[in-house]
């Protein structure tokens, strides 16, 4: 391209990268959770007002806006509340599609979190499917939810999630302090 033509060529964009460094603080409640999961334990927190158990805890009970303090050790078994089979890659994540991401509620807890489900056919999973955590080798455990590699379906019949919710609400009433 001649210099004259280059001058006439419209500029429609240019790259201007932004590089900023961050050092994150997890928060007091999350830090405690991460220290526990490094030991292979899942520890949630109970709202002192509603009696419900939140995992992973994030410092507050979002229903009431109050700090959660009481710790509850939870089993690594739970139920699929819903799920998606993802056919697109996740930016900055090497995992290859398709993969199953489920909203899981652990037994004895009341709030879902998302995690992978694997070692099954897509047809084997439905809302209400019972799951158990598949942990990485303990030598690889760090301060991360990813110590659980993924969840695996249990050889149990799926349960009714509406009944599960009602059962939990009744159970948590014992701990209510409104």
């Amino acid at each position: 391209m001649s210099e004259e033509n280059a001058a006439k060529e419209p500029v429609e964009g240019f790259e201007s990268p932004v590089n900023l460094k961050y050092s994150f603080a997890a928060g007091r409640a999350t830090a405690k959770f991460l220290r526990e999961i490094k030991q292979g334990r899942i520890v949630g927190q109970r709202s002192s007002i509603t009696g419900k158990v939140i995992v992973p805890p994030r410092g507050s009970d979002p229903e009431t806006g109050t700090a959660t303090v009481e710790e509850v050790v939870l089993p690594d078994v739970g139920t699929v509340i819903s799920f998606t089979i993802c056919h697109l890659p996740i930016p900055n994540n090497p995992i290859m599609p398709p993969f199953i991401i489920a909203n899981i509620v652990l037994d004895e807890s009341d709030q879902t979190f998302i995690h992978l489900v694997s070692e099954c056919n897509n047809e084997d999973i439905q809302i209400g499917t019972r799951l158990k955590a598949k942990w990485k080798d303990s030598s690889e455990w760090g301060l991360s939810m990813e110590n659980i590699q993924y969840f695996v379906p249990l050889d149990e019949a799926p349960i009714d999630i509406e009944e599960l919710k009602q059962k939990r609400l009744k159970e948590t009433e014992k701990y209510r302090n409104a």
């Binding site: 799920f83 697109l88 996740i90 991401i101 809302i127 991360s144 939810m145």
Partner: peptide
């Protein structure tokens, strides 16, 4: 760093709700 890195965009968030 604290959560499994599974935020598959808005579609990944809403698809399970639509399934329900």
């Amino acid at each position: 760093p604290f959560n499994p890195h599974l935020n598959a965009g808005a579609g990944g968030f809403f698809a399970p709700i639509i399934r329900e």
